[in-house]
Amino acid sequence: MFPFRIPIRDWISAAVDYLSTQFSVVFDSISNLVLFLVDNFKDGLLTLHPLVLIVVLGLITYRMAGWATAGVAVAGLFIVENIGLWVAFNETLALVLSAEVFVIAFGLPLGIFAAGSDRFNGIIRPLLDFMQTMPAFVYLIPAIMFFGLGLVPGVIATFVFAIPPLIRLTNLGIRQVPKELIEASDAFGATRAQKLFKVQMPVALPTVMAGVNQSIMLGLSMVVIAAMIGAGGLGAEVLRGIQRLEVGQGFEAGLAVVILAVILDRITAGFGQIKKPQ
């Protein structure tokens, strides 16, 4: 239609090149931090004998979700070990946990800030809405632009994809703290920090934990997708199954993902309901 092609790709390349050279220190530090986290989680999980980890995860699941779920979790973990997906399983777990560390580190303060400022909430809300309407793999594109291929962009994309529910629910939880509780604290002469840590956060905790739960589940789904850009783990096994049309292998990897999903979901769903020991 036109005699020329709009050079979007050239602009973008130029911009990304410019940014990644200008801010190479920033991107490098982020990369290193992500690698550090993932490696430590992975090493930590894999140095344990599988049996030990199975028992530990089983106990945590029992504490959070009761016998039945703990039974399912332990059986699932034995199956994963048995079908030779133990390492991939723990890689994925390490990726999810690393991404979640970033999600919590940024999501909580942003949520708290949004709860305290209607203006900031007004800005961030449509942004979060927009982020949630985007298909998951769209997040991979900017991530690979700045971090290349591998697990680092995978974790970064996962972080971006998984953070909205935590911000949203932290904000919501704090805003839902009854006005009188805040007034009661103020009447005693509570400072802002005292209100936050002694009243708002503890009262909002179940809602915040629902946010953590949702973000972990979103994170898990993203980590599997991130295998497309070389993040490894169970996602890579699924992908391999699909690419080679090996239905059985793909199914096994998928089953391991489901087992991980069940365990993470049940454990984090239980967080919100914990009472202080009597």
Partner: peptide
């Protein structure tokens, strides 16, 4: 402090 109609005590 204050005492309220809906008690306003900390549930946790």
């Amino acid at each position: 402090g204050m005492v309220f109609q809906n008690f306003a005590i900390l549930p946790h």
